[in-house]
Design a binder for these strands. Sequence first.
DNA 1: GCCGTTGGTCTGGTCAAGCAACCAATATGC
DNA 2: GCATATTGGTTGCTTGACCAGACCAACGGC
Lengths: 154, 154
Amino acid sequence: MLGRTYDQVCSVARTLEIVGERWTFLIIRDALLDVRRFDGFLSRLGIARNVLTDRLNRLVENGILERVAYQERPLRYEYHLTTKGRELAPVIITMMEWGDRHLADEAGPPRIAEHKDCAGHVVAQLACEECARPVPVGEVTTRPARAPLSGVAG
Amino acid sequence: MLGRTYDQVCSVARTLEIVGERWTFLIIRDALLDVRRFDGFLSRLGIARNVLTDRLNRLVENGILERVAYQERPLRYEYHLTTKGRELAPVIITMMEWGDRHLADEAGPPRIAEHKDCAGHVVAQLACEECARPVPVGEVTTRPARAPLSGVAG
DNA sequence: GCCGTTGGTCTGGTCAAGCAACCAATATGC
DNA sequence: GCATATTGGTTGCTTGACCAGACCAACGGC
């Protein structure tokens, strides 16, 4: 992120180095809503052109987006989410839910997640593979998975 | 975020305005690991002191952290997560999982989430309230929840 | 009275973000 | 053939965020 990195042995820090820059999450959010072209991102986000260029390039470099030609003469590309990129949807939906719960205005949530198959409401949750039940935030801890090499971060 | 805001009717954008700045997610990650003092964050993160001051103040203003005095003379505060702040844990765990899946090195994930009660492995997942089943990323859409006022964002 | 601890503030330089102008390849209208 | 529009950028300048390090302040211990 920002050229300098967080430089930590931590999957959260590593993830943020790729998607933690300003605008990046919103670009991915829009890509999940089927925005694909430079102009589309530009007009929806109100981002500076050079910054958008930079973010799209970085996302392509990191395998979140891929460039797909949609016409020759002039050669033009669309930016499509890869599988790796689409797998960021749970992160975004989880943020959306938190925002809905804590930052919504009177009108309620602007947008809701839905199950394609049955139109049911989709929620993000933590689940225990042992108990096979949803786990409330208060019941989660984390622990180091391997011998702590440097003792830093997690 | 950055003084200017994303200015969108979108819970993701609103959330990012509060926690989307550089370092903020890592501060919350550390707070979830029971780091509470200025020096603690400072030494674990390698963040500039003035930036840490700024981020802690913003998190307190936004009700993610609260200042709790732990001694008088000199008056010293710890920074504790509020409930609102602790509810960001699913966001961070979801990012951690994505990083584990896509960015881990040979040694595997540095840290894993665990259910306090049964020591089972905790995973983040999307679930349908209708089907009461986990929902794969490919089966989720979002739709506007109210009449689209401006037609922008979600 | 001096050092160490904790939690900052201040300063000055670097680098990212924002904005507007410009560029390039092509299609379209006349 | 020339002007104009469309799409997707690049360039250059300005502003402002981030960084490192110095400094400050309140106190405890010796």
